[in-house]
């Protein structure tokens, strides 16, 4: 797009955005906020790393939880089966004087089996609750992408108004080497912003 074509857009909104951008540039220059902008842009890769860390931590925690549940589930099933088997056999046998004790044991075994059933159900709930990992993980990934986008926008602004600064953060590896940073796109975007600004006499 050339500077000559830009006015033909004749779109009030585009012009408004252009003016706002130009004003922001002027204000930033006057206020000396370049450094702050650089700092903000520099915090973005860090924010991404932290979110990725959270995602990884969630993943490990769910995997550990599921492993623990998987290990515990067969135990509850086996305990239930053992209780039923023992109580059935005890109930069928005549222990003479000890009959009262046996009947109490049978009754207690029934209670243990019922408790094991409750434990089993709770283990299932713990397993089902790990589904949060899926949806929460997708949300974290979206925020990571958003952070990368904000970083690109900030970098564009920085490039635009401090292009000759040799110690600018724009030139440092850490920022331009980010996974979502597209140098080509940024340059295209820059041209377009320049065209628009030129059309507004800036």
């Amino acid at each position: 797009m050339s500077a000559q074509q830009a006015p033909e857009l004749n779109n009030a909104k585009v012009e408004q955005i252009g003016r706002a951008t130009a004003r922001m540039h002027r204000l930033l220059k006057e206020l000396g906020h370049k450094h702050q902008l650089e700092q903000t842009a520099a915090t973005m890769p860090d924010a991404r790393d932290r979110l990725s860390f959270i995602d990884q931590a969630m993943h490990e925690a769910s995997e550990k939880t599921i492993s623990a549940v998987e290990n515990a589930m067969p135990l509850t099933s086996r305990n239930r089966a053992t209780c039923s088997d023992l109580s059935a056999r005890l109930a069928e046998t005549d222990f003479g004087d000890q009959q009262a004790l046996i009947m109490e044991t049978v009754s207690r075994l029934g209670e243990i089996a019922a408790a094991e059933e409750v434990i089993h159900q709770n283990l299932m709930h713990i397993m089902e609750a790990q589904e949060f990992r899926d949806v929460a993980g997708q949300m974290v990934n979206k925020i990571v992408s958003a952070a990368a986008e904000i970083e690109n926008i900030l970098l564009d602004i920085l490039k635009e108004y401090a292009p000759k600064n040799s110690d600018s953060l724009i030139r440092t590896e850490g920022l331009t080497a980010g996974p979502q940073t597209k140098r080509d796109n940024s340059v295209n975007g820059q041209d377009e912003v320049d065209d628009l600004l030129a059309s507004l006499g800036l």
């Binding site: 995997e63 599921i66 998987e70 397993m127 089902e128 790990q130 589904e131 990992r133 899926d134």
Partner: peptide, 15 residues
């Protein structure tokens, strides 16, 4: 695509 989710579904099916 989520290994945790596959694991959960596998366990639910087992149940």
């Amino acid at each position: 695509d989520f290994s945790t989710m596959r694991r959960i579904v596998r366990n639910l099916l087992k149940e």
